[in-house]
Computed example of a mutant assay.
Amino acid sequence: MAEVSAATTTALLGRWVSPPARKAGTLAGTVAWIYGRAQSSTSSAMVVRAHMYVTVGDTDTVRGVLLNNYTGATVFPTVATGGGTSGVALTGSVALQTGDRIVCEFGYQAQNTSAAAETGTLHYGGTGTTDLASGSTTVAAAPGWVEFSGADGLFSTPTSEIVDRFTTGIGSRFVYYGGTFWNAGWKRVAVPATSSYPALMATDVGYEITGSTYYGEIVKMPTGGTNTTFSAMLLGPLDNGTYMSTRYTVATGLLSFINAVGYSDATPTTLAYSPVAHRWVRFREAAGTFYWETSPDAVTWTVRRSVPAPQWIRFGTLRTSFQGYADAGNTATVAEIDNVNSTPATVVKVWNGTAWAPKPLKVWNGSTWVTRPVKSWSETAWF
């Protein structure tokens, strides 16, 4: 957009609107952003101008202002380059209600004194898997971003809220395809390994794992098939080849902890799978670090791998799934999944001298102590 005034001029280049808030809460703290920007010449003297606010639902009514006409100090480059802030304190806090939206407006303030036409440009729409960084010129591919420090859990649901014990079927939190089914006798979900990539998926892509967890009990891994056969738990955005995964490969017997970009990870962490030690698998994010963990009982967890949390982890657009795969013509038994984000019935609490602590319940099977489920009566049946 061009301006031709010798006076200081402000121009709006773009407006972005968030998805609706999923729950009520107060939005406060800081906001950071990076996007591609450029000016037509060094004499343009353009700096960023930003205004952010919350609307009442889908209306034009302003609930409250978050950032009031912020004016930057860094002049745009003449070559399109990523730039922004590492964090600006919000002008005020806003008490959001469910359904409210954040509106972010970006433009420029031209501080030149020339009447010649000067142009400011904002780049957006990149679809690459790596977010745009400050100083980067990959503005056509790498997407720009805006991040509020206090928005976690307000515009997306924490992955820890995806809970299902599968006692009476597959609940509303999940959808399945490609042959996944619930077994009434087992009271858990079976995920086969076939060429159609069957999976049990969370029904929504509006989840986030920042400061949260996601775990499940893998009662049984599949058997049979060739070296292509696997069973995995995944966390990622829409299907673009970027995801975190804990994968069991049938032929090798290895459990791999994968940070995939472009559908692959050249250096995954691997170990020999144990159906006892690795009965439970978990994803967790805390203080900017992403963790892969395993546990024999959902009480004591062991970190198997950790990496600095990538930018996409902090987006509230994640999907979780349990997935299987095998080449056409191969056969494999199913993986059996249970107790997603749920404390198992095999855990009880005992007094340790100072507090009640969760411990796995074990029974003697004639030769060793093994973990066994506890059943309770629910009016008409044992569960």
Results as ranks from 00 to 15, higher is better:
residue 61 T to D: 12
residue 108 Y to H: 10
residue 157 T to I: 15
residue 182 W to G: 00
residue 86 S to G: 15
residue 196 S to H: 03
residue 103 V to F: 07
residue 210 T to L: 05
residue 2 A to P: 01
residue 60 D to S: 14
residue 47 V to N: 06
residue 267 T to P: 00
residue 258 I to F: 00
residue 57 G to K: 05
residue 214 Y to C: 14
residue 30 T to H: 05
residue 319 R to W: 03
residue 210 T to C: 01
residue 28 A to S: 14
residue 113 T to D: 13
residue 257 F to G: 03
residue 303 V to Q: 03
residue 252 T to M: 01
residue 201 M to S: 15
residue 83 G to D: 13
residue 56 V to L: 04
residue 177 Y to V: 09
residue 139 V to K: 03
residue 323 Q to I: 15
residue 263 Y to F: 12
residue 126 G to V: 05
residue 261 V to E: 03
residue 145 W to Q: 05
residue 259 N to H: 12
residue 142 A to N: 15
residue 138 T to Y: 02
residue 75 V to D: 09
residue 305 R to Y: 01
residue 20 P to F: 07
residue 165 R to N: 15
residue 97 Q to A: 08
residue 45 A to F: 04
residue 262 G to W: 05
residue 188 R to S: 13
residue 239 D to F: 12
residue 62 V to Q: 11
residue 190 A to L: 11
residue 281 V to Q: 13
residue 361 L to T: 10
residue 179 G to N: 10
residue 332 A to I: 09
residue 312 W to G: 03
residue 200 L to A: 09
residue 100 D to K: 09
residue 118 E to F: 04
residue 243 Y to W: 11
residue 354 T to Q: 11
residue 256 S to M: 04
residue 66 L to F: 10
residue 292 W to G: 00
residue 102 I to Q: 07
residue 347 V to E: 07
residue 194 T to A: 06
residue 196 S to G: 14
residue 311 Q to A: 10
residue 276 V to M: 03
residue 194 T to H: 10
residue 86 S to N: 14
residue 310 P to G: 06
residue 74 T to A: 15
residue 33 W to F: 15
residue 55 T to D: 09
residue 183 N to W: 07
residue 345 A to H: 07
residue 319 R to P: 00
residue 76 F to V: 00
residue 248 Y to M: 00
residue 327 D to M: 01
residue 115 A to N: 14
residue 39 Q to G: 04
residue 210 T to G: 10
residue 235 L to K: 00
residue 361 L to I: 06
residue 59 T to W: 01
residue 219 V to G: 06
residue 175 V to L: 14
residue 160 S to H: 07
residue 274 S to W: 05
residue 137 T to A: 04
residue 332 A to N: 04
residue 243 Y to C: 01
residue 104 C to G: 02
residue 375 K to T: 10
residue 165 R to E: 13
residue 9 T to K: 11
residue 124 Y to H: 08
residue 211 G to Q: 04
residue 52 M to R: 08
residue 111 Q to I: 06
residue 2 A to Q: 12
residue 190 A to C: 14
residue 58 D to L: 06
residue 263 Y to H: 07
residue 72 G to Q: 10
residue 44 S to E: 10
residue 192 P to E: 11
residue 342 S to D: 14
residue 112 N to W: 05
residue 257 F to Q: 01
residue 262 G to A: 01
residue 95 A to R: 08
residue 144 G to V: 02
residue 364 W to S: 11
residue 216 G to E: 05
residue 245 S to D: 08
residue 299 V to C: 10
residue 227 N to S: 13
residue 341 N to V: 08
residue 126 G to K: 02
residue 323 Q to L: 14
residue 367 S to F: 00
residue 67 L to D: 08
residue 195 S to R: 03
residue 304 R to S: 07
residue 189 V to F: 02
residue 156 S to T: 07
residue 147 E to G: 01
residue 157 T to H: 04
residue 103 V to N: 10
residue 365 N to A: 06
residue 45 A to N: 15
residue 104 C to M: 11
residue 207 Y to A: 04
residue 338 D to P: 00
residue 117 A to M: 09
residue 168 T to L: 08
residue 16 W to I: 10
residue 240 N to R: 13
residue 225 G to F: 12
residue 336 E to V: 01
residue 69 N to R: 14
residue 279 R to G: 11
residue 56 V to K: 11
residue 356 W to D: 08
residue 106 F to M: 13
residue 162 I to R: 00
residue 340 V to C: 13
residue 208 E to A: 15
